[in-house]
Amino acid sequence: MAVTPTIISSRANARVKQLRAAFAGNLRLSEGFVAIEGEHLIEEALRSGITPHVVFVSERREASFRLPEKTEMIVLSESVFTSAAETRSPQGIAALIEPRRYRLDEMMQHPDPLLLIAVGLQDPGNLGTLIRSAEALGAAGVIITSGTVSQWNQKALRASVGSVFRLPVATCTKDEIHSLSSRGVRLLAAVGAANAGVISAQHADLRRGCAILIGNEGSGLSDEWLALATEQITIPCPGPVESLNAAVAGSLLLYEASRQRTTTTLRGPATDMERIPNMQPRRPTGATR
């Protein structure tokens, strides 16, 4: 006979406090664990080789996928689950995972690595989108600087749609980033206007090792970061706009780098056609993914 699990209905329960701290990004109180919410994100974590430490399920919800045997499952009352989750409409299932930690050296294992550096990004949606774009377009990793929102922020997690579980993301100091130049990686500062000395993205050589710097949503890259860069690049915009959204700009530059690195041009008598070799099939994605 199946045993009916005990439903935790106290907000003061130690496990509930741990989940609440993880959702709030308090690694000390969560004992180093990060919270992820929703069946899709948990499935992505499992698919990426991450075993959840514990899964929390609302009393009105059941997990529709198989969990590893060593993963603990805890059932919470609806009100307790809602009190712990950060979203306005909780999905009724969440998990605690141990975040993977990466170092810059791990990204440098790639020949001519393509990197993206987020300098002071504040919008977690932008960071999550850039991490997703970086994985999709073949980057070796994403570097975040001090003052940039955490990749484990709940909105960043959702925007990455699981890419944060697989793509190396590391927090680096300015000195570590500066050292990339001596390791054969050029620092390319993304700027909004084509001033003197600024190179259009399609004319920049993005085949060799390079790291694209994307600045803060409001102020962009400071003079200090611009001085650190090897070159400044921009995305030509024929329309009357001052600048592009940080995630859009970074994604377009990553695409241009990917295009340069992977396309071969077939020339015929009447047309030029670009083909990308070894294209991988993509799963259909919805608006929420």
Rank of each mutant, 00 (worst) to 15 (best):
G138D: 06
T129I: 09
F56R: 05
L137Q: 13
K155V: 14
L67F: 03
S77P: 03
F56K: 07
T51H: 10
E86D: 05
S89V: 14
R66E: 13
V161F: 14
L180A: 04
R103V: 11
G138M: 08
L115A: 02
D112P: 06
R132H: 07
Q151K: 15
L114H: 04
R166V: 12
E135Y: 13
D105E: 15
D105I: 11
T129H: 10
T87I: 03
R158S: 00
I117Y: 01
I177H: 02
I117Q: 01
Y102T: 11
K174H: 09
Q122G: 12
S146E: 14
A85Q: 04
R60N: 14
K155C: 03
E72C: 06
V119D: 13
F56W: 09
I74P: 07
A94Y: 04
D112M: 08
A156F: 01
S163C: 09
S79W: 07
I177T: 09
V55M: 06
R100N: 11
V119G: 04
D112Y: 10
N126L: 08
H53I: 12
L180H: 02
F81P: 04
I117M: 09
A136C: 14
V57D: 00
L157T: 14
I117C: 15
T51Y: 00
E62C: 13
L180E: 08
L137Y: 13
A95D: 07
T173M: 02
T171F: 05
E86R: 15
S77V: 00
Q91I: 00
A170L: 06
S77R: 10
R88G: 15
R166I: 10
V55F: 07
Q122A: 12
T82C: 07
P111A: 08
R66A: 12
L127H: 02
T171N: 11
S58T: 03
Q109F: 02
Y102G: 01
M107I: 04
G141Y: 09
N153F: 01
H53N: 11
L114C: 11
A85N: 04
T129L: 11
A118P: 08
R103W: 04
A63D: 00
G141W: 03
T129G: 14
I74N: 09
V80I: 15
R132P: 06
L104K: 07
K174L: 12
F165A: 12
